[in-house]
Design a protein around this nucleic acid. Structure first.
Lengths: 195, 195
DNA sequence: GTATTTGTGTACCAATCGGTCAATATGACA
DNA sequence: TGTCATATTGACCGATTGGTACACAAATAC
C-alpha cells in the first residue's frame, strides 16, 4: 500500500457490523445485501477489504473468538477447578444474553448444520468448539495434578459436561432465555460438581 | 378424490426421506433439488402432494415430533422424578446418535437462526422447544405434589436444567459426539439432581 | 370406448444468490 | 499541478433459488 484514495469506512466498525449480522442470521441466512446494508458499504468495497463472504465470516469469527477468549482466559486462570467452572458458567450466562449483542453463540448457531456450500464453515465451527472443550479439559487435568479434584474424577468427562451445559445455554439464549434464567441453570449445573 | 391416475410413490416414504434431508442440512440449507433427489420424485409431484417447501418441512417436523413423543411419553410416565429424568436423558443420548438417523436434533438445528424468509420456521421451533420444556416442568410439578421432590425444589428450574442439558447434547451430537460420550454427560448431569 | 380425473415430466418463470468489471472519484506524493 | 495508486459506484454476470404452466400418461366411471 503506497498511496491512493483512502478508505472511506472504518474497517473495524464494518467488521463488527458484519459479525452482528452473522450472529443474528447465521452463515447461510446472511445475504450480501444484509452485509452491505449493515456495514454501510457496497459490494466491491466489501470484496476489496475482506475477500469473499466466507473469508469475511472467518474474520468475524476470529473477532468473536478473541472477545470470548478474554473472559474464558480469566475464568481458566482461577485458582481451583471449582472456581474455574463457576466463573466460566457465570461469564457465559452473562455473555450469551448481553443486551448489546445478538442472543446465543456464534460458534454454535452460525452453521450447526448447512448445505454443501457451507460445509467447510460448519467443520471450522466444529473444530473451534472442540478446541474450547480441550482448553477446559487441559485445565481440569492440571487441577487433578494439583490435587484439586478427586482421584476418580475424569477431566475429559468434566470438560465435556461443562461444554454441553454451555452449548445448551447457547440454545436456550437463542430461544429467548433471559440472563436470570440462565443463572438458575448455572447454579443447578454446579451441583453436579465433584467435591 | 373420485378417480384419476394413482400416485406412483409412497407418500410416507417420501416424507421420511425429506425429513432426513432437513435433519442433515437444516431448513435453509436444503434446496428443492436436494429434496426431489432424496424423495425420488419431481418438483410438481412434491408440490401437489405436500404443498410448498415450508409446508413440507412442517409435515416432516410433525413426523419427527411424533416419533420423539414415543420415548418422551414413556420417560415422563416413570413413577418418580428421578426415574423420569434418567429415562429421558438416556433416551435422548441414544436417539441423538441412533446410527440410522442424522446426528443432532431437528428441532434445534433446522433453524436455530436464519434469514428473514425462514423466520416463521424458527419461531415454530422455538415454540416446540418451549413446549417440550413445559411438559417436563408439569411432570416435575406433579412429582412435587406427590412428595417426590424436596419442598425447596423448583420444577421450573429443574425442567430448564434438563432441557438445557438435552439441547447441549444435541449440539454435541451434531458435532460428532458418540453415544458413549453422551452417556458420560448424562451420568454427570444426574449428579445435580436433588435427593 | 370414451369422458373425466388425477399424477408425472419437461420446460420454464421471476427473483435472488455470490461475485466481478469498467468507469469514476479521491487522496498522497513528486 | 500533475501523476499514480487505490476506493467507490452502478451495472452487470452466470448460477441457483423456490415455484408453475402445460402437455401427456394412467387410472376409474359411464
Amino acid at each position: 500500500m503506497v498511496a491512493g484514495r483512502p478508505r472511506a469506512f472504518d474497517m473495524e466498525q464494518a467488521l463488527d457490523r458484519a459479525l452482528q449480522v452473522f450472529w443474528r442470521k447465521g452463515y447461510e441466512g446472511t445475504s450480501l445485501p444484509d452485509l452491505t446494508d449493515a456495514m454501510g458499504i457496497n459490494r466491491p468495497s466489501l470484496y476489496a477489504a475482506f475477500g469473499n463472504k466466507e473469508s469475511l465470516f472467518r474474520k468475524a469469527l476470529d473477532r468473536y473468538s478473541e472477545r470470548n477468549a478474554i473472559f474464558v482466559d480469566e475464568a481458566l486462570s482461577a485458582p481451583t477447578a471449582r472456581e474455574v467452572v463457576e466463573k466460566l458458567l457465570h461469564s457465559v450466562a452473562y455473555a450469551r444474553c448481553c443486551p448489546e449483542n445478538p442472543p446465543g453463540c456464534l460458534a454454535v448457531q452460525a452453521a450447526l448444520v448447512c448445505g454443501d456450500d457451507a460445509e467447510s464453515i460448519r467443520k471450522e465451527l466444529v473444530m473451534r468448539r472442540a478446541a474450547s472443550e480441550s482448553r477446559i479439559r487441559e485445565r481440569m487435568e492440571r487441577a487433578k495434578e494439583e490435587g484439586d479434584l478427586p482421584t476418580n474424577a475424569d477431566p475429559t468427562v468434566l470438560a465435556r459436561y461443562v461444554s454441553t451445559v454451555i452449548q445448551g445455554m447457547a440454545v436456550q439464549s437463542a430461544s429467548g432465555a433471559s440472563h436470570t434464567e440462565l443463572e438458575t441453570v448455572v447454579e443447578m449445573a454446579l451441583l453436579a460438581w465433584p467435591t
